[in-house]
């Protein structure tokens, strides 16, 4: 494992911890998109089915369990915890996320490396992860006051994607035959979706002002 990959995983872990901290300690999910969280739960559930069929390392299995557990608990918290649920911006979080799931499934059925159940689901999870942040970005744009934790959550998620790209570049040059087009292209699309957010985040940071995205 290279430093970019480890840093990427740790940034991803940090983003989840920031979100859980907000929900668990402050008992608020204001500004957090339940649609995006549901999509991530689907992403991890379909990608990590291989914990039953393959073993890579203790690290790999542990991280998979952490991401599965955290994504499902965030969804359950937002849906069923009374106080947390009350802070949910239901009226603003209107992105029709199921319209992302179907095209991703169709695309995975069309473009994949092997036509097997696990492989198609794995490919589907990559396509879906690429666009899963969209409901969250739309909600951020609609939210007048973005609190620091929500901003940091999205910033860390974007950082994780950026570091994964550095990891792929590193692996391409250091490991023979490391070519994975599906992973790379969907990963690149996913990272590009954050570009706009990163611009406004850095502006607010530079000017020491509250983060606000233009309508």
């Amino acid at each position: 494992m290279n430093i970019f990959r480890l840093a990427g995983d740790m940034t991803h872990l940090a983003s989840v911890l920031v979100l859980l901290l907000k929900i668990h300690t402050i008992k608020s999910c204001a500004g957090v998109s339940l649609k995006t969280q549901e999509l991530y739960a689907i992403v991890f559930a379909t990608r990590y089915l291989d914990i039953f069929t393959s073993f890579y390392s203790i690290y790999n299995t542990l991280m998979k369990l952490v991401f599965l557990g955290s994504s499902f608990s965030i969804v359950l918290y937002m849906k069923y915890h009374k106080t947390v649920h009350r802070s949910y911006d239901r009226e603003q979080d209107t992105f029709r996320h199921w319209f992302l799931v179907l095209p991703c499934l169709l695309l995975a059925l069309l473009i994949h490396e092997k036509f097997t159940f696990l492989e198609v689901l794995w490919t589907f999870s990559l396509y879906l992860e690429a666009v899963a942040i969209l409901p969250q970005l739309v909600l951020l744009q609609r939210t007048r006051n973005i609190d620091n934790l929500t901003g940091q959550y999205v910033f860390l998620l974007g950082g994780y994607r950026g570091l994964y790209i550095l990891n792929w570049i590193y692996r391409y040059f250091t490991e023979p035959h490391f070519v994975h087009w599906i992973t790379w292209i969907s990963g690149l699309v996913q990272t590009l979706l954050y570009a706009d957010f990163f611009f406004y985040y850095s502006q607010s940071w530079k000017n020491n002002k509250k983060l606000q995205l233009p309508a």
């Binding site: 990959r5 995983d9 991803h12 291989d50 393959s54 073993f55 890579y56 994975h180």
Partner: peptide, 10 residues
């Protein structure tokens, strides 16, 4: 258990 090289990432 089979091991797929590309799936060692999360």
């Amino acid at each position: 258990l089979n091991k797929s090289y590309k799936k060692d990432e999360l």
